[in-house]
């Protein structure tokens, strides 16, 4: 994995951030809840989701910075959720494509 340039700095508000909201938007909260709930109720082991999340993030990080677009953690979360739903037979690939209007 190619690391970002060393000149990059952290957010200034990186510390003392205890009260910061965890989710910026309700869709992030729902995506989180759906992924965790499905695992909690045994539809897939958490590891399976996590592996897909690692892959989604790695894919983003392997693209040159100019083509990456803004970092949005929950977009990767959502991509991981879609992949794990298909790999565990909870949603068929064509259902997912129809859903995404592809």
């Amino acid at each position: 994995m190619e690391a970002p340039a060393t000149t990059a700095t952290l957010h200034e508000s990186c510390i003392a951030d205890v009260d910061a909201p965890t989710f910026d938007a309700d869709w992030q909260r729902r995506a989180f809840g759906v992924a965790v709930a499905l695992s909690e109720f045994g539809h897939y082991p958490w590891d399976a989701f996590q592996q897909q999340l690692i892959v989604a993030i790695r894919d983003w990080e392997s693209v040159p910075a100019s083509g990456q677009g803004t970092w949005q953690y929950y977009d990767h979360w959502l991509a991981a959720l879609e992949r794990v739903l298909v790999s565990h037979g909870l949603v068929a690939e064509d259902e997912l494509r129809a859903l995404l209007g592809e």
Partner: peptide
């Protein structure tokens, strides 16, 4: 917290 997830 959000920064923990930040790639940087």
């Amino acid at each position: 917290p959000y920064w923990y997830k930040d790639p940087t």
